[in-house]
Structures are given as structure tokens and as C-alpha cells.
């Protein structure tokens, strides 16, 4: 049942193409030349700006699976982090989930708003529910991540 629900059009379309945010990203991108949102198989996303800073968070699909998020453990600014290392944790009533860094680098900013309002992860996973910004040390790692279409296929499996 749940599997069926997740592959339903409405959820996929939200996970894959939140129209407004894509348009806005596209606007920024056109100024800077290139940028994109990439995904891990474990449902983290990273969106890279022109300065080589990646904003990370968890996907709509993951947020939905977790249910109401009631606590987010935010990393400390200045922490050096390796790709696939735990960078954060997201807790709902029923479960604790470790969040891994999609890319290596240094944490340069964190989303303090999640301290008071962890539910931003549910209401706005790709925007207001971002977790941290990482100054990327190896942009090559981005090539190993999935793009929008590959991730859409991944969660359809």
C-alpha cells in the first residue's frame, strides 16, 4: 500500500518537480552559468551555488517517510566533514534518522531555524528545511550523485 502511495503521481511530482523552487533555482543559475540539485540514494540532496558552496537537506520523499519531524540535530559551523559521514540527524516520534553528507567539505552555515521549527523539514524540505551549507572541497564528488531524473527513477523502483 505504502509503496503504491509513494509511486503515485501526486507525490512523485512534488518530490521531483516543485515547480516554483525549480524556476527560482533556474533563475539564479542563469546568472551564474551553472548549478543544480543532486541526490544521494539515501535521500539527501545538495544544491551547489556559483561559489562552490553546497546547501544540503533531505528530500520530500524522505521527509514524508519519516513523518512529523520533531528534532533536528544541526552540525557545528567549522566542522570538516567527509562525504557519506554523518552530518545531522532528524527525529520523528517513531524514528531517528542519520543524515549523511552528500559531499566533503567544511560546514560554513547551518539552518538555526530548525531548532525552533523542526517541522520545516516536512513543510519545505527543499527550501526552508535546508540543514547546512558546506564549502565543497572536491567538486568531482558531485559527478557520483544522481540528477533529478535518476533520483525520480530511484524512488520509483
Amino acid at each position: 500500500m505504502f509503496r503504491r502511495a509513494l509511486t503515485s503521481t501526486s507525490i512523485l511530482s512534488r518530490a521531483v518537480a516543485p515547480a516554483r523552487s525549480v524556476q527560482r533555482t533556474a533563475g539564479i543559475l542563469s546568472l551564474r552559468g551553472y548549478a543544480t540539485r543532486k541526490y544521494t540514494p539515501e535521500h539527501e540532496w545538495v544544491s551547489v551555488d556559483g561559489q562552490g558552496v553546497g546547501t544540503i537537506g533531505i528530500t520530500d520523499y524522505a521527509a514524508k517517510a519519516l513523518g512529523d519531524v520533531v528534532f533536528v540535530e544541526i552540525p557545528t559551523v567549522g566542522t570538516a566533514i567527509e562525504a557519506k559521514e554523518q552530518v545531522s540527524a532528524v527525529e520523528s516520534v517513531k524514528a531517528a534518522s542519520d543524515v549523511y553528507a552528500p559531499i566533503s567539505g567544511e560546514v560554513v552555515e547551518v539552518n538555526d531555524a530548525l531548532g525552533n521549527e523542526p517541522s520545516l523539514i516536512n513543510s519545505s524540505p527543499f527550501d526552508k528545511g535546508w540543514i547546512a551549507k558546506i564549502k565543497i572541497s572536491d567538486k568531482g564528488q558531485l559527478n557520483a550523485l544522481m540528477d533529478e531524473a535518476a533520483y525520480a527513477d530511484h524512488i520509483k523502483e
Binding site: E42, H43, E44, I58, A65, L66, K94, A95, S97, D98
Partner: peptide, 12 residues
């Protein structure tokens, strides 16, 4: 991301 719940061990 890895989830731990009371209902199982630790899976993605």
C-alpha cells in the same frame, strides 16, 4: 540517511 525505529533494527 538511515532510519532507526522501535520496530526493526537499522535500515535505509
Amino acid at each position: 540517511m538511515t532510519v532507526r525505529t522501535a520496530f526493526r533494527g537499522c535500515v535505509s
